[in-house]
Write a protein that binds this DNA or RNA. Structure first.
Lengths: 195, 195
DNA sequence: TCAAAAAATGACACATATGTATTTTTATTT
DNA sequence: AAATAAAAATACATATGTGTCATTTTTTGA
């Protein structure tokens, strides 16, 4: 595929992203995307076989953007505690965002497609997050900011808590108070006083 | 509806449960249940309007059974720590069960039906679990078994961790080691030494 | 035992999404 | 500018699930 193709592909993914943000994943049909992109049925099938393929591209885009944001925050010369607090605040914002349909869409996508558990994009995201968190904690420990005996375990624990909050936010709803409580809990676990 | 109707309804729910255990939620059609129950299409519609309604009944059944198990374990004169450890071990068993399709089905059901977050059966389950956990922790604190400043917050925290593990088990997979680590983490948080 | 009510059946009409195949339009190259 | 290739559009055939409804079977009770 030439230059033009990738450009159109990108256009489709970006347009589809909006559709997914409105309707989640499972309700979106190829027809919906066709209409949003103002192209033809056959035309879309030239680029993507199904909605799952398109959503995967959307996810990759999102991941890229998230990584960029994180990289930016790290590039500034901040302490480990600063970065951790910043990260948690960002998470909090996401968790409390009403109608976070893209997160919901991600779960729908998961369960609609029965992805392999060993190797899928979201496992990669999770593992990568754990690794970054681990490194952050290690740095904090070295600098005497944190106290922690098992950095890897703690990193994983933090991510599990956040996963729990994320799914709960989508299914049973969570209060700001509950999120704050969990953040304090995480920071206390590392002997960080400040909130 | 008379006696016979409820009996048949129960039969349908129990049979449908097996179907959901095999196929999850979203893949199951009314036809599947019709065939499993060996009744007619129209016959099934006499009792239930759709698969969601049937699955809801399955969930209620499951909740009832889980409650019974918990009640039994409490009825024995055990310490709070004993009960907590028992509970966590039970959770671990569930988390590591391969092909726990009923849990997966529950998530599918969630996302297929866009349940209200404020009031749904799984929120009730969660809240009830938090309450029981809180009481358990309080008892433990009173007996000098646990140390805890914020029983309610801790109870919620434990449940969030478990939720995180549950969704992770379904989506990205978890290792026994990771679960053990989380259990230790929970117990340490309450100053319980033993595992 | 038999008539009325209740329960169950299965065919049908409907709706919706999918993926393809043929045609038409647009772009490229000599 | 004509021929060729690439891209896009449209119509179609297919597949699948849903819910209803007229009909048949079973149950009940007088």
């Amino acid at each position: 595929m030439g230059e033009k193709s990738t450009q159109k592909k990108k256009y489709i993914v970006e347009t589809a992203r909006k559709v997914f943000m409105e309707k989640g994943f499972k309700k979106v049909t190829m027809k919906d995307i066709v209409e949003a992109c103002d192209i033809s049925r056959g035309g879309l099938y030239l680029y993507f076989e199904n909605t799952a393929q398109i959503f995967l591209e959307v996810l990759k885009m999102e991941t890229q953007e998230a990584d960029d944001v994180f990289s930016d925050s790290i590039s500034e010369d901040a302490t480990a505690a600063d970065i951790l607090v910043l990260f948690l605040k960002e998470q909090k914002k996401e968790l409390l965002r009403k109608n976070d349909t893209l997160t919901q869409a991600t779960y729908e996508f998961y369960f609609e497609n029965n992805l392999p558990k060993k190797d899928n994009i979201l496992k990669k995201q999770f593992d990568s997050a754990v690794k970054i968190m681990e490194k952050l904690i290690e740095t904090g420990v070295e600098n005497g900011e944190f106290y922690c005996e098992d950095c890897k375990g703690t990193a994983r624990n933090i991510m599990f808590v956040l996963e729990g909050l994320k799914i709960s936010a989508q299914t049973i709803g969570i209060t700001e108070e509950a999120v704050d409580r969990e953040i304090v809990y995480i920071l206390k676990g590392l002997d960080v006083e400040e909130v």
